[in-house]
Nucleic acid binder design. Structure first.
Lengths: 198, 198
DNA sequence: CCCATCTCCAACTGATCCGTTGGAATTAGG
DNA sequence: CCTAATTCCAACGGATCAGTTGGAGATGGG
């Protein structure tokens, strides 16, 4: 069998992503990642460094993925509600990112890896909101940065505390009808939250 | 020194609460809890059972605490915005509960301990929202359960992903001005989200 | 004062975890 | 084909974890 280092790395990354999203930094073991990938553990260390470096790598790739699949254009042309809906859809189809972000927020304190690059990523969204405001599509009161954050919270919260969502709504996210119901609530809430009033 | 089992239990509970909130179920060790409390580890097992049972005990007590300090009356008389503000204030002053709820949502899948009692706790809030709607204080579209959830998300998200909040707003929650700014955004957002329109 | 009972703890067990090492298998260049 | 470099892996070391045990110290009723 010929060497295929790219494939080895890919399988290790995929296994690490799944394990970290499911169990978090503390709950994940390097042994389990290696076993899941069918690769020896030593490869993890030689390719990705230690556990924390591997977690940072995985999170960075997921952030790049969401940036690619929910482009800012979805804000330029459509309204805020549909932007929130697109974020909701991405989370529903791919709950990995939300879980990784939460694990990071809970497990690590202080500055996070690659914070400057990620800050730029968010600031681009803020800039898009500002532009929408100049077009008169947004109210003036919560400033753009706080508004972006609140809209993202509407879309993400469901996947962060699914047990609370289940207790409140009496249904689970596995139910397609309930999922659509939640999405509609998010879209409408984002419109009300951002839309110009009085 | 006379035996004081109540005090021993209280100190163990307090230490467990702090450790679980800081590090989560996986990141917390029974040794650290015992050492922090200055009590032998064996007392933890004889008083509270294993690690998971201890986590469930701690979370249950924090839920009871928030139910006592943010009563439903804050919804009956004031508006939704001030209710959201009160929840925000509770989280800011006592970030323990949000963190515990998140650890639970991430680390445990399937039904959570004491789910029926907690469901009742949330349904009471839904009922209060329904009453507000009958008074004409709420719009009709997102039904009460989903509305409660969204309002809670506005107040809680800041404390769940502080690293994202920092990157977006450029300030930290330690800054009192920024905290007030965030609170104001939450209050206004909740009003817009729930208030009757057109 | 005595003794059954409860509280407490130091030390242990067995398992697991992170990270490393020494060497075998494979590749590519000459 | 030969050799140096690279990829891979089984096995290990030291640390730490959850949970247990045997016994020392404190208590209270008779």
């Amino acid at each position: 069998m010929a060497w295929n280092t790219a494939e080895t790395r890919r399988r290790l990354r995929a296994a690490a992503t799944a394990e970290f999203a499911a169990h978090g930094p503390h709950g994940t073991t390097m042994d389990r990642i290696a076993r899941r990938a069918g690769i020896n553990k030593e490869r993890l260390y030689s390719y990705f460094g230690g556990k924390d470096a591997l977690f940072a790598t995985v999170l960075g790739e997921e952030l790049a993925a969401v940036a690619a699949t929910v482009p800012l254009a979805s804000l330029g042309e459509q309204d805020i509600g549909e932007f929130a809906g697109a974020v909701f859809d991405h989370h529903a189809a791919n709950p990995t990112l939300v879980r990784l972000l939460h694990w990071e927020g809970l497990a690590y304190s202080g500055p996070v890896p690659d914070e400057s690059a990620r800050t730029g990523f968010y600031l681009a969204k803020v800039e898009a909101f500002e532009a929408a405001r100049r077009r008169g599509a947004l109210a003036g009161s919560p400033d753009a940065a706080h508004l972006v954050f609140l809209v993202l919270s509407l879309a993400a919260w469901w996947f962060a505390v699914p047990q609370v969502a289940r207790m409140l709504t009496g249904a689970d996210a596995d139910d397609p009808g309930e999922l659509a119901h939640r999405r509609a609530a998010v879209v409408e809430a984002a419109r009300r939250l951002a839309g110009p009033h009085e």
